[in-house]
Design a protein around this nucleic acid. Structure first.
Length: 446
RNA sequence: GGCCCUAUCGUCUAACGGUUAGGACGGAAGCUUCUCAAGCUUUAAAUCCGGGUUCGAUUCCCGGUAGGGUCACCA
């Protein structure tokens, strides 16, 4: 094992939006480095200048910043290092390890080009993968592979080896799709005298049909989840749980716990399916873990009445899985906390037992007095203790009596067929507003 | 197709030769003050198949099967 300081890296290429699988490798490389008090590097792999786009690079930066999976050094860009790549290329050609080959371009243009090929003796290359064990490849099929389009235009394999080697990367943690690139890169490392790093190839993350995650299969850019109101700590937790397990029955881990417990040898070998439902469930857990103040702040929640908003947070924590759901509830089901609802007569009397006409109205009237005697700031429990006996009394007179009282009460207050219970609503709305709404409901029954 | 990798409930996974194969998410049922949510309780649900090795295989070996990756002058 390498005893020097651990250096890992995340080297995405900005040729499209990265998905969960890509960021999961970033998370693992980051956790591993942090656990060993090492360095985590981010390098933008933009050697293919034609396909690399600034907006994709921008999105990568944004996502890593959101997840707070940050590079310990200034972010490198392989296009900034072409001089160094050219220098190495020249050295390789000079030593005879590589040569310029004048040949027809590999497209239909018939154009002649001078590519640089690596002189491959066609040996068998073996390496140890931290996750999969020993892997052996026969490199003869790669023949003399191309390492540069031209003497001044190096390609991926060369750039990666030089950049990793110069940065002192000790552990290459990347996706399984790179496993077959490894032997060629090792050949290059050997020719250049770079130490062969420790390799760990992570399984891929799959779409719901077990195929490779892709845009078409509904894979989203991670920033879409951020915009949907998924917490960074939830995404980090979920990503880490895909293909890795702490070993005990713990279900939710903080960043610190993740760093402390992460273990490459416990990484799963098979691919994992990205499950949005599970992500949302984990997100709900982390939303609940927030203080009420933090909940409002992190969700960037605004409402006409801030104190009522604060009181609504426990309700929101029970119901919502994302902050966009929170916003929907604030505008829908819980809008009654901020403005008096419209109510309809038919819905109001829906639970009135057929044999007890007039119950709705009399029950509502009967609630008014006890409500008025309530103190200004009451808990839902106190409201319940005050009003529940009245509903129970109606139940005692006949089945359905309790619902006959509670349903119109709740509906009068909320204007919703589904809402939090009436006691909670009253404790938030306060007695004066509550009685006003009940009186309005009684008026409809006249 | 060649090469490489992989295989436990629907999903994420635990069990590194001996367990009634565990947990979580999701599902179902029930309880709790009217509705919803939450909570609690209960429940269904898996070792891909076939051979070995072994007193004993989810676990080790081999072979199938299935899935995935990769075979560029992309990364």
């Amino acid at each position: 094992m390498n005893m020097s300081k651990v250096v890992t890296r995340f080297a995405p290429s900005p040729t499209g939006f990265l998905h969960a699988g890509n960021y999961r490798t970033a998370v693992f490389a980051y956790l591993f480095a942090k656990q060993h008090a090492g360095t985590f590097l981010v390098r933008i792999e933009d050697t293919d200048r034609a396909r690399s786009k600034p907006e994709y690079e921008q999105n990568i930066m944004e996502t890593l910043a959101w997840l707070d999976v940050r590079s310990d050094t200034e972010i490198a860009r392989s296009s900034d290092r072409v001089e160094r790549h050219k220098e190495i290329l020249a050295k390789l050609i000079e030593s005879g390890a590589a040569y310029v080959s004048h040949e027809a371009k590999k497209d239909d243009s018939n154009q002649m080009v001078d590519v640089v090929r690596f002189r491959n003796s066609g040996t068998t290359v073996s390496f140890h993968d931290e996750i999969r064990g020993d892997i052996t490849f026969d490199t003869t099929e790669h023949e003399d592979f191309v390492i540069a389009r031209a003497v001044d235009d190096p390609l991926f394999h060369l750039a990666v080896i030089v950049d990793d080697g110069d940065a002192g990367v000790t552990h290459v943690i990347r996706g399984e799709d790179h496993i077959s690139n490894t032997p060629r890169q090792i050949l290059l490392q050997q020719a250049l005298g770079y130490a062969v790093p420790v390799y760990a190839h992570l399984p891929l993350i799959l779409g719901s049909d077990r195929s490779k995650l892709s845009k078409r299969k509904g894979a989203k850019a991670l920033t879409e989840y951020r915009d949907q109101g998924v917490l960074a700590e939830a995404m980090l937790d979920y990503l880490a749980s895909l293909g890795w397990h702490p070993g005990d029955d713990r279900e939710y881990l903080t960043r610190e716990e993740l760093i402390r417990m992460f273990d490459l040898s416990r990484v799963q070998k098979g691919g994992a399916i990205f499950d949005e439902t599970k992500l949302f469930s984990i997100n709900q857990h982390w939303m609940r873990a927030l203080s009420d103040e933090a909940f409002v702040a992190r969700g960037e929640l605004v409402a006409a009445d801030e104190s009522k908003l604060r009181e609504a947070v426990p309700l929101l924590k029970d119901r919502a899985h994302t902050f966009s759901e929170v916003r929907e509830m604030l505008a829908g089901e819980l809008a009654c906390l901020f403005a008096a609802p419209e109510i309809e007569r038919e819905v109001l009397v829906r639970k009135e037992p057929a044999d007890r006409p007039g119950l709705t109205k009399s029950a509502l009237q009967g609630l008014l007095e006890p409500l008025r005697r309530l103190p200004g700031d009451v808990s839902a429990e106190v409201v319940k203790d005050t009003l529940m006996p009245l509903a129970d009394a109606e139940e005692a007179k006949g089945k359905g009596g309790r619902g006959g009282v509670l349903w119109p009460l709740r509906y009068a207050l909320s204007g919703q067929e589904r809402s939090p219970d009436p006691f909670t609503l009253i404790s938030i709305l306060g007695a004066p507003e509550s009685t006003a709404r009940i009186e309005k409901a009684i008026a409809i029954l006249e």
